[in-house]
């Protein structure tokens, strides 16, 4: 019954499309690798000996400093980080405030109709593409150095992201409740307040919080160009290679951001 079966030692050839896909995959990887090598070869990297001598000079003091954070600057770092935190709050709030009306225009399904949707969307894309740090430099020149410049830069830049996600949310809303309120004799304002706002609010809030997490990171570096917050005292210490103090600053930044991220993502989970 269980007689030995001979097994043919032939492998059917793979069909042409399988072999073609395999070849394309290999070719694709080869192109990526070739581009990689080309990029490295042509991008004017320093010679290895220069890197090595730089490392020799800096690596040991760096490591020594990193493991022994200077507690004398803890208070300064903490206070700067608190300012940074509030910069991020105001920057995000400003961005949300400005993005709110824009997003209804860009959505095109509620206000103004589709005529303004495309220009609205393009404006949002343009804002998003414009580097935040350049905005910060402009506002530092205009409003003087300090948190105000950073808040303005974050506020303007956040419009791009928030306007985009807000308008996506608006485009996805259920039109049923709006019809119901119109049918009950409600005017435009009633429809907006009772049918649109309740639908979009949780998602808006969740995205604002997410943007806040991003802005907190931005706020931590905008000071490097004078726009307030922890960036300025940090980059001064970096320039003078005071590694132990840098270490303290890094610890404060990482700890602060990790805690805020955790809190924010917990609130976001409860919102949506």
């Amino acid at each position: 019954m269980s007689a030995a079966r001979p097994i043919p030692n032939v492998i059917p050839p793979a069909p042409a499309h399988v072999r073609r896909n395999r070849a394309m995959l290999i070719a694709g990887i080869a192109v990526l690798v070739a581009l990689f090598i080309l990029a490295i070869a042509t991008m004017s990297l320093p010679t290895w000996s220069r890197v090595a001598s730089g490392l020799q000079r800096n690596a040991l003091p760096l490591l020594r400093g990193l493991v022994r954070p200077e507690t004398k600057v803890l208070e300064l770092a903490w206070n700067s980080m608190v300012v940074t935190f509030f910069m991020a709050i105001l920057g995000t709030a400003l961005g949300a405030l400005l993005a709110f009306p824009l997003s209804f225009i860009a959505a095109g399904n509620l206000l103004g109709g589709t005529r303004w949707a495309l220009p609205g969307k393009s404006l949002l894309v343009a804002v998003r593409t414009f580097p935040e740090i350049v905005l910060a430099v402009i506002f530092v020149a205009a409003a003087g150095p300090g948190p105000t410049a950073g808040i303005m830069a974050m506020g303007i830049h956040s419009i791009g992201y928030l306007g985009k996600v807000f308008s996506d949310v608006i485009e996805g809303i259920d039109q049923g409740p709006m019809e119901a309120i119109r049918a009950a004799g409600g005017n435009q304002l009633h429809t907006f307040l009772f049918a649109v706002v309740p639908q979009v609010l949780p998602e808006f809030a969740s995205n604002v919080l997410y943007r806040f997490e991003i802005n907190l990171r931005s706020a931590a570096v905008l000071g490097m160009v004078g726009a307030g917050g922890i960036g300025l005292p940090l980059i001064q210490r970096l320039q003078f290679r005071r590694w132990a103090e840098v270490s303290m600053f890094l610890i404060v930044i990482v700890a602060f951001i990790v805690v805020v991220d955790a809190l924010s993502s917990r609130i976001r989970r409860r919102l949506v």
Partner: peptide, 9 residues
């Protein structure tokens, strides 16, 4: 080469 599968145990 031909392999065989004998009865399992």
């Amino acid at each position: 080469m031909t392999e065989t599968v004998g009865p399992a145990v």
